[in-house]
Simulated assay, not measured.
Amino acid sequence: MKIKLFLAASLTALLCAGNPAGADMFLKDGFDGYDFAPEGGLYYKENFEQSAGTVEFQRDVAVSGGALKLTVRPHCPPAGKSCSERAEIWEKPDLRVPYDQGVWYGFTVKFGEPIPQDDHRYLIAQWKREIDPGAEGDFSPFLALRLRQGKLFATVETNYIAPQATPAAATSENSAATCATGQTPVWLRPKTNQMRALVATDATWTPEDGALFSSCTAAISVTNHGNPLPSPDSGWVDFAIFTKPGPDGSGHIEIFANRKPIVTVKGHIGHADKGLGKNQYFKFGPYRAANKGEWTLYYDNFRRSPYCEDVLHNGLCPAL
Rank of each mutant, 00 (worst) to 15 (best):
A165P: 05
S84C: 13
R86K: 11
D300C: 06
D24K: 06
T206G: 14
N314V: 12
S215H: 07
L145S: 11
W236M: 05
K128A: 12
E56M: 00
E88L: 08
K151V: 02
P167I: 09
K28S: 12
Q194P: 02
L297D: 00
F48L: 14
C179D: 09
K110Q: 10
S305G: 12
G150D: 12
N193E: 13
L143G: 10
G285I: 04
V72K: 08
S215T: 04
Q183C: 03
V72P: 00
N279L: 06
G182L: 02
K292Y: 06
N291V: 04
S175F: 02
F282H: 04
I124C: 00
E254F: 05
C216Q: 12
V199Y: 15
P247D: 03
T12K: 03
D310C: 08
G150A: 15
E136V: 03
G30Q: 02
I124L: 12
F6A: 13
P247G: 01
N314K: 14
V222K: 10
V61Q: 00
Y99L: 13
L27Y: 03
T204P: 11
L276W: 01
P98A: 06
T264C: 10
L147M: 07
S231D: 15
A135S: 05
N47I: 01
R189Y: 03
S214T: 03
R96Y: 00
G106S: 04
G112P: 03
Y287I: 00
G30H: 15
L212C: 05
D238E: 02
F239C: 06
G235R: 11
E157P: 02
T264E: 14
C308K: 14
L212W: 10
P114S: 08
P78V: 04
P20A: 07
A17G: 09
L123E: 12
D119Q: 11
G249V: 01
R304K: 12
C317T: 12
G22T: 10
Q101E: 08
N193M: 15
K69N: 01
A176P: 00
P163K: 02
G270V: 07
P185Q: 06
C76G: 10
K45G: 15
V222N: 09
C179N: 09
A197W: 00
H268Y: 08
W90A: 15
D233T: 15
I131A: 15
N227L: 06
F111V: 01
D94R: 13
T166S: 14
L152S: 07
K278A: 11
L5F: 11
A67P: 04
K292W: 10
V55H: 01
E46T: 12
E294S: 05
G80Y: 11
S64C: 04
